[in-house]
Simulated assay, not measured.
Amino acid sequence: MSKDKNQERIVIDSGPDGHAFSVIDTGNPGDGDIDEAKDPNTCTLDTPLKRGEQVITKVTLRKPDAGELRGTSLSDLVSLDVAALQKVLPRVSTPTLTEIDVARMDPADLVQLGGIFVGFLMPKAAKSKLEYQTG
C-alpha cells in the first residue's frame, strides 16, 4: 500500500518476522526517489530511524529563516553542536524529525545532516569560492 502526499511517500510493508511497518521516503511522487545528486539537501540515512512502526530512510532539509535559529547560537550550529542541531533540525526537516529522533540518530547521519545545514549558513560568495577551489 502506498500513499503520496507533499513529496512524502509512506509504504506499508511487512518485515521478515511478519510484523507490519511503514517506511517514510521523501521521494518525489510519481518521479522515483530523490537522489542526492539531484537534491544535495537530501540525506539517505546510514542507519534508518525507527519511530514506532515507521522507518525513516531519507531526510530533506530546507534553508531556515532567521527566526528558526532562535534558542541557538550560530557558532554552535557551525561547529555542529549536538544540542543546537537537536533544536534546529526538527524545524527544517522533511519528514519532520523530533528532538528525540535527532538524539537517537547515528552520529554519522547527524554529521551528514549537520554538513547540509551548515551549507545553508554560508554566503553565496563563500560557496562559489569553495566550489571553485574544489571543482
Rank of each mutant, 00 (worst) to 15 (best):
E131A: 15
V102C: 05
L130T: 10
D17P: 05
C43G: 07
T26H: 09
V78H: 01
V88P: 03
H19T: 14
K129A: 15
V55T: 14
L77V: 03
D13T: 14
G18C: 07
I12H: 14
D81H: 02
E99D: 15
D106I: 13
D31K: 08
D33Y: 13
I34H: 10
R70N: 15
S14I: 15
I56Y: 06
L45W: 03
G32N: 02
K87E: 12
D33K: 08
G18P: 02
K5N: 04
Q86R: 13
V118T: 09
T42A: 13
N41I: 02
V78Y: 03
Q133K: 14
L45M: 07
L69Y: 02
R70A: 14
H19I: 13
K129P: 13
P95R: 07
V88W: 01
P29S: 06
L97D: 00
D76I: 06
L49R: 02
S75E: 12
V118R: 02
I34C: 11
D35L: 07
D31E: 15
T26G: 11
K38Y: 06
R51G: 05
T47F: 13
L97W: 00
D101M: 04
E68D: 11
D4F: 09
D101G: 07
I10V: 10
L74V: 08
D76Q: 11
G71W: 04
S79K: 11
L110P: 07
D81Y: 01
A20M: 15
L89P: 02
S79W: 04
F120N: 02
K5F: 08
I116V: 13
L49Y: 04
T72D: 03
L97S: 02
V111H: 08
A84G: 00
D106H: 15
Q86P: 08
G27K: 05
S79A: 11
V88I: 07
D101S: 06
K127Q: 04
L49A: 05
V78R: 05
R62Y: 08
V59S: 06
D109L: 11
T98E: 03
D39P: 03
T60W: 03
D76S: 13
T72H: 01
T94F: 09
R91S: 11
G27C: 08
T60L: 11
E36Y: 06
G27A: 12
L121S: 01
P48L: 03
M105Q: 00
L113K: 04
R104V: 09
D106T: 14
P48A: 02
T26L: 09
K129V: 13
D31F: 10
Q7N: 15
E36Q: 08
A126R: 00
S128L: 13
D35Q: 09
S128Q: 13
P107Q: 12
S14C: 14
